[in-house]
Every structure is written in structure tokens, then in C-alpha cells.
């Protein structure tokens, strides 16, 4: 399972059932960022910078 491989790399050990449950629970969170009204989905390029510009 891909998620087990990810979790093993992240945790440094094989995941437990509890780890898997925590991991699987994040889909709603990711969807809230993917479909957020503040950053409408575009057919073009998403040009918004993710970080504030460095002070001059």
C-alpha cells in the first residue's frame, strides 16, 4: 500500500492501524484547500505566490 510506504518513511517504522486511521482522515482537509473560494480553480496557470515577498 502506498500509504504504508509513505508512513513508514515519515515515521521511521511500520505504521500501526492507528497511524493508518489518522492518515486516512485527511481527505476533507485536502479538499478544503483544493477547492477554496479564496483561490478559485483556473483553466490557466495558478500564479499566486505562496509566500510574501522578501523585504527590499
Amino acid at each position: 500500500m502506498m500509504s504504508d510506504a509513505v508512513l513508514t518513511a515519515f515515521l521511521g517504522r511500520a505504521p500501526t492501524d492507528e497511524d493508518r486511521a489518522i492518515h486516512a482522515d485527511q481527505t476533507a482537509r485536502l479538499a478544503a484547500v483544493r477547492n477554496n473560494p479564496l483561490l478559485p480553480v483556473t483553466d490557466g496557470l495558478q500564479r499566486q505566490q505562496p509566500f510574501p515577498p522578501e523585504p527590499a
Partner: peptide, 17 residues
């Protein structure tokens, strides 16, 4: 552990938001 489910692109998209 929740962070293991957050792709880099989602973190950066959160920054864009």
C-alpha cells in the same frame, strides 16, 4: 502524523490562499 498525508503542493496551495 496527519502531516504525512499533506503533499507539498497542498502546503504551498495553502500558502497561496
Amino acid at each position: 502524523v496527519q502531516a504525512a498525508a499533506i503533499p507539498a503542493q497542498s502546503y504551498l496551495r495553502a500558502g497561496q490562499i
